[in-house]
């Protein structure tokens, strides 16, 4: 089942009189259950692509279909609802709420969804155990390591059982060992839960773990490789 379809996506930023083309004519589709990495150098448009697919920003041109629904036409409220129920986010710098504990951070989305307390508690405790944070539920972000904080962020992203998890350079602030462990954990979630992951990175070790690597360069897809398949490049210019 096609979970994401991007058609002729363009994004232009205006900085004073300067026009910056962040994305120029992106076409791609993601099937449910994929574990895909978007790679490319800084400024290639990785974060912009993830932000647009996640409904955090609006494209200059083009369409984004999420589970068949064109999210570029949605208003603020509907987008907010869609993010809450269908998309999980993992950001580069953890972005946990500093005044909440690990448990409360993971619980945050379920609270917004209005899940009853008992069900919520059981679900969050299971998730925290799954990401290896059992016993650390009551720690605040500043009492945890970067790896532990990012695990909480993954638990939070998965809490609502989303169709798609978007992770923007999730290992960038972690040492290589912790980073790889996090990716392994996400892969495991992908396998056991069937959640679709779209991860942006420029870390080659993360790319090695992916089953599909989309390479972006100057706002365009320069290659789209499915690991295990013969060179399935389907895109243009280097």
């Amino acid at each position: 089942m096609e979970i994401v379809k991007v058609e002729n996506l363009r994004k232009i930023y205006h900085q004073d009189a300067l026009e910056i083309q962040a994305l120029s004519g992106i076409n791609l589709s993601l099937e449910s259950g994929e574990f895909t990495v978007v790679a490319g150098p800084s400024g290639s448009g990785k974060s912009t692509l993830l932000n647009l697919i996640g409904g955090l920003d609006r494209p200059t041109e083009g369409r984004i279909l999420l589970a068949g629904e064109d999210i570029t036409r949605l208003g603020k409220g509907r987008l907010s609802h869609l993010r809450l129920n269908k998309i999980g986010f993992v950001f580069q710098s953890y972005n946990l709420i500093p005044v909440l504990t690990a448990y409360e951070n993971a619980e945050f989305i379920l609270l917004l969804q209005g899940m009853p307390y008992q069900k919520r508690r059981q679900h969050v405790m299971e998730l925290l155990e799954e990401v290896g944070l059992k016993g650390l539920e009551n720690r605040r972000p500043y009492e945890m390591s970067g790896g532990q904080q990012q695990r909480v962020a993954v638990a939070r992203a998965l809490a609502s059982n989303p169709d798609l998890v978007l992770a923007d350079e999730p290992t960038a602030n972690l040492d290589s060992k912790t980073g790889l462990a996090l990716i392994d954990m996400m892969l495991d979630m992908n396998k056991t839960r069937g959640v679709t992951f779209l991860i942006s990175t420029h870390d080659t070790r993360v790319m090695d773990k992916a089953r599909r690597v989309i390479l972006l360069r100057d706002g365009q897809i320069s290659s789209d490789v499915r690991i295990g398949e013969s060179l399935a490049q389907n895109s243009a210019s280097p």
Binding site: L84, F108, L112
Partner: peptide, 9 residues
């Protein structure tokens, strides 16, 4: 970040 996660304005 909260708005990104789905908190309504």
């Amino acid at each position: 970040m909260m708005l990104a996660l789905g908190l309504s304005p």
